[in-house]
C-alpha cells in the first residue's frame, strides 16, 4: 500500500465516521474506488457456506448479494473459493454460462460489470468485497490496485471488530449478518427435524426449492418458519408456477 492509497482510504473512512462501522466500510469502498456500488460478504457458518452480506452500498446491490448467498453462485463465490480476484467486466454470454441466475438479475437491475476480491490477509480468508459498475468495462489500473489495498484494510477491520468481542461470542456489528438471516437458519433447523436430515442438507433443500420456485430464499424461509410451507419428503418438491411468486 503506498502513501497516496493510505491517505485516500483514511480520508474516506474519516468522512464516513458518523455512520455505523460496518456500513462505513461499503461507503468508503464506493468512495475510494469510484465504483457504482459495493458489497462486503463474510463467509463461514457451516459447510463453507456464506454467513452473508455484512453491508451493501445500495439496495440494487443487496439483491445481487442476496442472490449469490441464496444459490451459491456468482463472482463472489468464485473469488472466495479460488482466493483470487474475479473480474467480470462484461456480463455477456460467457459470464452467463458461468453464473446464469446472477447475470440474469444483474441485467434486470442495470448492473454492467462485477469485480470480486477475496478478503484475505496473511493467508486468513474471511469473505469477499464485490464491486459493481453500471457500465461495462474493466477497472482502471488504479482502481484495481486500490481494491487490493482496500481488502487488506477491510480484512483487518473485520478481524479487529471480532477481536474486541468477548471470547466465543460474535461481535455486535457482525451479529447483524446472522440476525438478518435468522429465519433461514431457523427454517434449516425445522426442515432438518421434519425430514430427518442434517441441517446443512436441509438448507440445500430449502435453497433448491426457492430457486426452482423463483422466489427469494428469505421469503421461502419465512413461510417455513411461520408454518405456511412444509417441504415434502421423499420426492422432488414441485414448485408452483413461478409467475405466482413474490
Amino acid at each position: 500500500m503506498n502513501a497516496d492509497q493510505s491517505l485516500r482510504i483514511a480520508v474516506a473512512f474519516a468522512r464516513e465516521a458518523a455512520k455505523s462501522p460496518e456500513a462505513r466500510l461499503c461507503s468508503a469502498c464506493v468512495d475510494v474506488l469510484d465504483v457504482t456500488g459495493a458489497g462486503i460478504t463474510i463467509m463461514g457458518g457451516g459447510g463453507g457456506g456464506h454467513a452473508g452480506p455484512i453491508c451493501v452500498s445500495n439496495p440494487r446491490m443487496a439483491a445481487l448479494e442476496d442472490l449469490q448467498y441464496a444459490i451459491g453462485e456468482g463472482p463472489c463465490q468464485d473469488a472466495f473459493k479460488s482466493n483470487m480476484f474475479v473480474h467480470a467486466p462484461r456480463l455477456d454470454v460467457a459470464a452467463a454460462t458461468l453464473w446464469p441466475s446472477f447475470v440474469d438479475l444483474a441485467h434486470s437491475t442495470g448492473v454492467g460489470a462485477v469485480f470480486a476480491y477475496p478478503l484475505s490477509a496473511n493467508g486468513a480468508k474471511i469473505g469477499v468485497l464485490t464491486l459493481y459498475q453500471d457500465d461495462a468495462g474493466e477497472l482502471s489500473a488504479t482502481q484495481h490496485e486500490d481494491s487490493i489495498a482496500m481488502v487488506e484494510v477491510l480484512t483487518e477491520t473485520v478481524l479487529s471488530l471480532q477481536d474486541a468481542a468477548p471470547v466465543g461470542t460474535l461481535a455486535a456489528d457482525l451479529d447483524d449478518v446472522v440476525a438478518y438471516r435468522a429465519e433461514i437458519h431457523q427454517a434449516s433447523g425445522m426442515v432438518s427435524v421434519q425430514l430427518q436430515l442434517p441441517v446443512a442438507e436441509a438448507l440445500l433443500r430449502i435453497r433448491a426449492y426457492a430457486f426452482a420456485d423463483g422466489r427469494p430464499l428469505g421469503v421461502v424461509a419465512r413461510e417455513i418458519v411461520t408454518r405456511r410451507l412444509r417441504l415434502a419428503d421423499d420426492r422432488v418438491d414441485l414448485p408452483r408456477d413461478p409467475k405466482e411468486g413474490e
Binding site: G45, V158, Q162, A165, G168, T169, A171, V178
Partner: peptide, 8 residues
C-alpha cells in the same frame, strides 16, 4: 471469527 459465526 469462523467459530463465533458458526456458534451464532
Amino acid at each position: 471469527l469462523q467459530h463465533a459465526l458458526n456458534s451464532r
